[in-house]
Simulated assay, not measured.
Amino acid sequence: RLLELIFHRRMLEYPCLTADPAVANAVFLPYYGGIDAMRYLYGPDYNSSHQHGRDLFNFLQSDNLEIWKRFSGHDHFLVISRPAWDLCQPLPTSPEDQRLWGTSFLMLPEFFNATVLTLESRAWPWQEQAIPHPTSFHPPSLALLESWVLRVRRSRRSTFMLFAGGGGTSSSGAPNIRRSIREECDSYRNSSNIEGLLNGRFETVCEIVDCSNGIC
């Protein structure tokens, strides 16, 4: 969840900042959406997750409304330190609608014009832009970065790892990417064409490592 704080701090050091939003080419919204989402995902507002972001929009409508209306929000952007999939729960059409995991921030029509930087974006919404997780790798020069990229490209990698995480065991039939990844892995392992999948280059096609006991 530190991405929002890190990005905000870096923006405060940006040399081209202006105190007058009327002359700004882009307007950064220092809204910690990933942190705010916690109360809708786990807290007392669990059953009101479609309200995530409405307080922000109400603020934008009450504070310098002309700045938002100038381009209908097209020049506004924000950072949310959660995957986009956690923020695209369909808006309820009735109180009886089944609640899925996540909030509805990215489904609010009020923010369709704003650009949202997320840890993982969906493929089709133009306003979502994926940015990487914060890491400890910060090369001080372009030359060092390019040398690292070249080393990675030349490396012989026979094993690839994907972290799917736990959960996704519900039998409700609701969409769940973690369960889908594990089911696809099982499908490959049980395939009748296992030799063709291995192609003589790999020992196994897919293997699940269970780290639930703390030992991997």
Rank of each mutant, 00 (worst) to 15 (best):
P175L: 04
N190F: 14
S170F: 06
I177L: 13
F160W: 09
R156P: 08
N193V: 06
S172L: 09
S170I: 09
T159P: 02
R156L: 14
R179N: 09
G167V: 02
G166S: 00
F163L: 15
P175A: 09
S155W: 11
G166R: 02
E183S: 14
I177C: 13
P175N: 07
S170N: 06
I194V: 11
T169D: 02
N190D: 15
A164V: 05
I177H: 13
S192E: 15
L162G: 03
T169M: 05
R157T: 09
R182G: 00
M161C: 05
L162K: 01
A164M: 03
R179G: 04
R153S: 15
A174S: 13
R179C: 05
C185T: 02
T169L: 06
S187T: 12
E184H: 06
S187G: 12
Y188E: 03
N176C: 01
R156F: 13
N193I: 07
R179S: 08
I194S: 03
R189H: 05
S187H: 12
F160V: 09
G168I: 00
I194K: 05
S187W: 06
I181Y: 02
A164S: 04
L162T: 08
S155V: 06
N190S: 14
R156V: 15
D186M: 02
R156A: 13
S170A: 11
S158C: 14
Y188N: 05
G173H: 11
N190E: 13
T169P: 02
S155R: 14
G173K: 05
N190M: 14
A164P: 00
Y188S: 04
E184V: 11
A174D: 12
D186I: 03
G167I: 01
N176V: 00
S187F: 10
N176G: 00
S180G: 14
S172A: 12
R178L: 06
R153D: 12
C185L: 01
R157W: 07
P175C: 11
L162D: 03
R157C: 05
S172D: 10
F160S: 10
G173Y: 07
N176I: 00
E184S: 09
M161K: 03
S158Q: 15
P175H: 13
G173I: 06
